[in-house]
Design a protein around this nucleic acid. Structure first.
Lengths: 206, 206, 206, 206
DNA sequence: CATGAATGAGACTTCATTCAT
DNA sequence: CATGAATGAAGTCTCATTCAT
């Protein structure tokens, strides 16, 4: 009866999942603290009390929405790393995905999740869990590259990935703020360069 | 009579500044949307109506607090770059400052500011302005390094700095969430390596 | 199809009676206004909609529970008076029963009934009816005692019983509140003394 | 800043006491669980939010009202016993007051208080306290009567008073339910008789 | 200059109830 | 016979805000 990481799924039928998706998009749009039941209700075309029937409290609803969204994003990353070619090729795909233009909602949701996790211990725990899964494909690619001699860095792969991901995450806010100085194309090239340099990748063959 | 970027400074003398500082710390602690007049009032030991007397509305108070804090942070950076030694040395100082351990409040405030700016056009404008000033010392150092041949990159300095700052900013959230995988010492080394590699810095003399 | 004083018995077979008993105990525990469908439902292990199927509305359920309980209590009293020995002996049995330690639920239910009856006309009518039946054994005993010369009072038996029952009822609240000054043993003796004195009972033979 | 037995008096000026009185009368009228903020607000001619400004929560308001009312009633009793004539005369005055016709509100409030106290530990504690003060004049009169030989009972005065008060309290509900069998005049005579008999009062001189 | 009193708007939440199966 | 899904009505509570002093 419990699912989604300990949150009791209260009730509801098929529509519950649909509504959850709507809730996520409203959340991305308005932000956690400004997402009211009535916002989601009118966006989803259901009654406010239906939302409570589905999720319990407002907080539970929003947390469920956060979980749902982030879960999906992690799965995308895992799929990106599924194809078994060279480690740099895989890493490149992961980077591209991280750097690619995305529906703004994805980034908003990410920021939302960070913001909430900083203060909510339960979300923070979940966040740590997600991070681990999110990092894994990166870490494995680096490990493999080092092992096979494709990468020549001396640093610890975990730490390297921490910096690589920081680089990706650090671009989220500037893009959301539509800072005009973020020139997508150039930034992507430089970011990939930075990673390649950091790992000591031999890119001659690419 | 107007100051702080168009916000009417309502009233109040010395105490107002004290209270502003308190407001900032409460804001960092609780987050924008959860900082009520009464929170700041009790933290500062004044009446709610006094806060309104000082700042006007709740939003005005919070925005003033955000401005106040971020302004201070930018000034620190500008001071870091004041000393006129080599461009890499200056950049290193800026990086160190950006990477250094700080009172958590600083980072919380930064995240707070990002989060607010994403949705508030007025804050976003202010944010752009701040970013420009924040970036300038970095950009100038890179320019000088390239001009003097100390750095050998072909990329545009502005874009390079965008990536460098993304790297710094991207570390804020993991640290606030106390993710255990962030190993401060190693990460700093790698981050500096990454920047040095990116710029093609000749570090043999350092 | 109608029973229990005009309340339509909606539906349900044997389980309905079980559930009614559960409802009564929940009612005694929580009080009229705080007994929700869901309380009874979870206590009885049935769905809320089942309760509605059985009883109709919430009020109907609670009234049925009150009727059920009080009905049982009156029957006990009538049984107490069934044995045909002397009037004082009978009265004594009735008093003992009224004064005896009882499961708290009995007294709670009584108070619940009083409290509800004060404001609900329909319950008040039912209450008057119950009172009449509850009083009858007392009144008849007094009548007989007077007629046979065993009691020597000049007062009207009805009025005497009113006072006697007030005495019993007045002990309910102190006991429910567990006021420590209520010393059961002594109080019973004194209460019986008071009644005996009031009726002018010749207790020499008892 | 705390008063009325530990309940924080939140705020408010002179009108607060007026409103408290209104709240009490609404409470007597409608009963605890059915007294909403809006009922008191409209009866008192203030806004709902004013009530919360005064009392905090709905519960706090009602508890304050209960305290206020019961406090007043106890004071009346204490005043009844102030005059220093004979113990029986004093006791008679107390009984008369207890038996006298009163504005229905008084009795309703009493029942309200009992009902609430049975389930609320805090109110129960307060109730015990009130009882002690309420009983004292009775107990002292009995003591004096026994000491001076005016009363000839062998029983413990405390226990006697418990029974006497039960008798008074037990009349509250029948009267509130307007049971036609309660004949005020006769009942008063009998009740006084009962007490006199219980105490062994020599009434020849009265 | 600073405050307390009073209020209105708006949100969450509880809960009985309706309906389809 | 019994239940789960969905909803509307109603109440409490929070909080910014206005106003008088």
């Amino acid at each position: 009866m419990d699912n989604e990481r300990g949150h009791r799924r209260r009730a509801g039928g098929e529509r519950r999942v649909e509504v959850l998706r709507v809730a996520a998009s409203v959340l991305a749009e308005r932000g956690y603290d400004r997402t009211r039941f009535s916002d989601v209700a009118s966006a989803a075309g259901v009654a406010v009390s239906t939302l409570q029937f589905y999720f319990g409290s407002r907080d539970d609803m929003l947390v469920a929405a956060l979980h749902h969204s982030t879960e999906e994003e992690v799965r995308v990353m895992e799929r990106c790393a599924a194809q078994e070619d060279g480690p740099w090729e895989r890493l490149l795909r992961l980077l591209e995905r991280g750097l690619a233009s995305q529906p703004e909602q994805t980034w908003r949701m990410l920021l939302e999740f960070w913001y909430a996790a900083v203060r909510d211990p339960e979300l923070r725990a979940h966040s740590a869990d997600l991070q681990r899964r999110y990092r894994r494909p990166f870490v494995e690619a680096v490990h493999e590259g080092v092992r096979t001699g494709r990468f020549t860095t001396d640093q610890d792969p975990e730490d390297l990935v921490t910096v690589v991901l920081a680089l990706l995450d650090g671009l989220v806010v500037p893009r959301l703020c539509a800072h005009d100085y973020v020139r997508e194309a150039q930034v992507r090239v430089i970011a990939v360069d930075a990673v390649a340099g950091l790992l000591g990748v031999d890119r001659s063959t690419t």
